[in-house]
Design a protein around this nucleic acid. Sequence first.
DNA 1: CTGTATCCATGGCGATACTG
DNA 2: CAGTATCGCCATGGATACAG
Lengths: 222, 222
Amino acid sequence: MSSYGQFCPVAKAMELLDERWTLLVIRELLAGSTHFNDLRRGNPKMSPALLSKRLRTLERAGVVRRELHDGRSSYTLTPAGEELRPVVEGLGAWGIRWIGSLGEEDLDPHLLLWDIHRTIPLEVWPSGRTVLGFEFADVAPRIARWWLCVTDGDVDVCDADPGFDLSATVTTRLRTMIRLWRGDLRWPGALKEDLVSISGVAARDVPLWLGHMKLAAVERPA
Amino acid sequence: MSSYGQFCPVAKAMELLDERWTLLVIRELLAGSTHFNDLRRGNPKMSPALLSKRLRTLERAGVVRRELHDGRSSYTLTPAGEELRPVVEGLGAWGIRWIGSLGEEDLDPHLLLWDIHRTIPLEVWPSGRTVLGFEFADVAPRIARWWLCVTDGDVDVCDADPGFDLSATVTTRLRTMIRLWRGDLRWPGALKEDLVSISGVAARDVPLWLGHMKLAAVERPA
DNA sequence: CTGTATCCATGGCGATACTG
DNA sequence: CAGTATCGCCATGGATACAG
């Protein structure tokens, strides 16, 4: 966080915000994560030491507030931090418009399921228990199969078979599933071209159940 | 520019944009600078090697376009780069609202005059030549005196006496002048409290001539 | 669960000089 | 004017282990 030697407000903002991981931590807080390990789950490649350091810096800067509730610490955004929402959303909108290509290293199934799990449109899922399976064709067997268990408004991500009956199973390449989630690819077209297949009694409902990430709605450049 | 290992558009955007100086270079391009040395003037503490590297990275990313006009290279933003304007403006608005305190190292008179020189409201200046002097009380003598020469829509910054008659001279601390320029402080109050004094025949017009930086209009938190 | 403590390698970046 | 070239430091941050 060394100084740029400028009085310009953009420079002063960037002194705090342009350090590696910082805005991604804020993105997680904006998304509603409040606990240390949730923040880690949203940024799995960030070391805990560095996360701790970033949180402390943001707290000193008045962007993050740390509180202790029955021995558990929780992190929330102050009004100053909350005001970074348009900036982070603007960066996301820009990113999805202009950074189209994803490298292999960007395709993390855990991150995909974690993101799906927290923005899923629960209101369109049936009541009772619904289990949705994923099978990714092109990743290591150990992390190729995932389950989403939705039980009366509660969502769980499993990387091991929970044992319940499956309402449907989605089979595709991880890259394809991520492109669908990001809105780079549309469900009808992907199904028609056999880029993805859905089996099970509730196969027709899966696209509706999953939806897209919020930024998927951003228009793309012509 | 190492990868975050995430498909999230915010993360992909930050892979490119969170490197030191990058968004400040883009800020300069958004402000209208097109030549290498103009970009340097806007970021005087950035080494030319690093500026060169950043420009190349941004060009590869499709954000900056480099062109040669009669042997002079010029840099302009592509549509993708131009679309970063709301992000940079958002960061500036956030910065001026929430990062109030400026360190001594942020108070660069050259940067102040350079910024004034390019956003000055020429339409309210008289026709013919007008010369405005600055005297900063609290900086090293070598960089304490500056002149702004406005000649029929052309603005020049001088760090040596141009020799013309002065329409007015502004005398104040550099910090105070910067606070006025940023809109942290208002001219009437500063004059009344003798934080700044203006001498010369056109003394009354100086606040109007100078105006403020654009972000000065941003409302501050209560 | 919520972090701290250490260690270490890397390479980013600052400084300076120089060139066509 | 518009950059390259070179050098070397040190801080950043990645990895891992461990602790209250």
